[in-house]
Design a protein around this nucleic acid. Structure first.
Lengths: 245, 245
DNA sequence: CGAGGGTTTGAATTAGATCAACTCTCGTGG
DNA sequence: CCACGAGAGTTGATCTAATTCAAACCCTCG
């Protein structure tokens, strides 16, 4: 069962304006709905917060909620019986979760940084979808985008070397930073909210290999590592070239 | 550029009934549209055939068509500059392709068995989507289903051993066979339309490792290999257990 | 200051890749 | 009918990239 230590912050009927002033609206599927009708969405939303390390979606649990991340960042992952873990993605502000077709979630989600999220009843949101085709269209676009990312990740996991994987990862963080969505940034300085273990489980490597590979990239002058959670890209072009072989 | 050696079989304006009698309709997104309105879809469709080995979607080409496979099977893949290949999926009758958001395709597609497919203009089909919300909903469901499959494949590629990968592959073929969609089948007899090289590139392994692993599974009595393209599952339970570690 | 988590580095090990025969199947043509 | 050859698949021997095991090395925080 997913942990929800923090109670909902706002009741669903009380406030019609939170969506209007939502930080995440710009990046989110929600802005497919215009101001006039946003109340219809707002009345379904239950806002809650999740602390780092807490799981808010548990693989196998009944999938009766949709989630929209409005702040913070989280990791999505699948576990094997013996504890092996594959992180299938990192998500940040504006990301939509819970598009399962089956009755249960296909992955777990755990906060990395403190997360704020809007929770929607699956069935109610689905009904609303009928009224707002633009919202459904937006969801379809998101799903397609994620599918493309998933295919790219399959190429990485199936065919790239450790070096190429780490370079690809840094490269994708840099792009995400440019769009100012997932991680804090300042030009080519990447703030990694996740630990080495998370990076390893995302790239299909071990912690040691990730660490060694980063060290080597540093010794070659491609990057700097001012702290474990900060990486500075010194040679973006060479890094990008490395990422694709 | 994608190869289209065979000219379209039927013109788009000539026939309104092909969709009605389409073999693939049951498995396809098309059956979201009722008989009365199916003509609207049919008039957009251009049917063509693709022979084994021919590429009909090329990664990087402008993504101006949607495709619906009505017969045969194909592989979807991404290539790296040096020729490394990752097959991201095998698709069969009823499968929908081309849900790209970007202006270009993110993967290539090549026929394994002779393929028949309906091609739709992206822009026209998108316009039609507005009129048939049920069709759009179906696409969203499909996209979500594929996303779940992609996550499962990431777990396989990132964390499973060769043995577990091959077992997972056979297991998923068996399930696909049960649904009588992708590959021919008779109970636990799997007909593999793809060669060892394709299996290897799907599982992130080499041909040799796939071959060795199958041989070992055979020597352990889990499977039989009457011919290179036929595999008989002798112990489904043990195989399924192996697949998840 | 000292404890404990996360990270880095080093040495030994191994799963799977690579390189290299060999075999099987099947279609062709003598 | 059988020899032949090409392509796909299998099997064996060796090699290596990445893992595993083990030991420091940092930060951070009480």
């Amino acid at each position: 069962m997913a942990v929800f230590s923090c109670p909902p912050i706002r009741g669903s009927l009380l406030s019609l304006e939170p969506c209007l002033s939502c930080d995440a609206r710009g990046e989110s599927v929600c802005n497919a709905i215009d101001d006039a009708h946003l109340g219809r969405l707002a009345e379904l939303a239950v806002v809650s917060e999740v602390q780092p390390g807490q799981t808010f979606i548990e693989e196998g649990d009944p999938a009766d909620s949709f989630f929209n991340l409005t702040a913070g960042s989280a990791k999505l992952f699948k576990l094997m019986a013996d504890g092996r873990r594959q992180i299938t993605g990192f998500v940040g502000r504006g990301h939509f979760l819970g598009l399962a077709v089956s009755a249960t979630y296909a992955f777990s989600a755990e906060a990395i940084e403190p997360v704020r999220l809007c929770r929607f009843s699956r069935s109610r949101l689905f009904r609303l979808l009928g009224e707002f085709p633009a919202l459904e269209r937006r969801l379809l676009e998101r799903a397609a985008t994620e599918l493309v990312a998933a295919q790219e990740q399959m190429l990485l996991l199936g065919r790239k070397t450790a070096r190429e994987r780490v370079a690809s990862f840094l490269e994708s963080l840099r792009r995400a930073g440019d769009e100012a969505v997932l991680c804090g940034h300042a030009g080519l300085t990447l703030a990694l909210p996740m630990g080495r273990g998370d990076v390893a489980d995302y790239l299909g490597l071990t912690i040691e290999t990730v660490s060694r590979t980063l060290s080597r990239l540093r010794s070659e002058g491609l990057i700097e590592i001012p702290s474990a959670t900060t990486i500075l890209i010194r040679d973006p072009a060479r890094l990008a070239a490395l990422a694709c072989g």
